[in-house]
Amino acid sequence: MTHPEELLAPYVDGVLDAAERAAVEAHLAACPRCREEVALARRAVQALADLTEEPVPLGVTGPVLAEARRAGEPRRSRWVPALAVAAALALAGAIVLPQLLRGRPGPKEGASATTAMEADRGAAELAAPAAPPLETWDADLDERAAKRLTARWAPPPSPTYAGDDEREEALGCLLESGAVVDDAHELVRLIAARYLGTPAYVGVFREGPGGGEPPSKVVVWIVASDDCRILSLLSRTL
């Protein structure tokens, strides 16, 4: 027996014309398999119709809109991003940034005393996990390399680190592109490299619900170092 595969969905939806409907019903009368399928299909249709629309969680489209704003602007000269960075830094607030720049003495890190002590020394950033230094990599990353960053934490064998000015600029660029640094979005790694040939800053974040809860995912932001536009955004659920 051939089964009227293409007619059964429209039959369940009630959109067949009278002749087609009569033909399907004649078939159903003789075909237990299709009768069972129609009953299952009706059940599925009902279940899907009963699904409620979920609201969009916060923070989903914000980075996209930030990226659109950047794309909509003409390419800027070097000093304009510097102003924008200053604005972003101001926006980020007097709390977050000094913490980032000095090494955050947070209750989360067991080594907070060490961190605070080392903040007085020049090498603060190197030791404080809450305030990563800017690693400079002579490397051209691709998507595969970026994905590896979501999984691997160890620095390269002989890392070199940039000075404070460039590090501040990298931070500002990430913030300007829409990245957030706070209790729920911990910046764990900051890298200057190239991404598909474009000079780029890479921020690796651990994100979670905040409030001392463990992070639930790793997010890698890659932004162009000249105008802070987003080049890639990857995440991996932990």
């Binding site: 595969e5 369940v12 299952l40 059940r43 249709v45 279940a47």
Partner: peptide, 10 residues
């Protein structure tokens, strides 16, 4: 669509 509905129904 029909195959998907049947699968889900099952």
């Amino acid at each position: 669509l029909h195959r998907g509905r049947v699968a889900l129904g099952r």
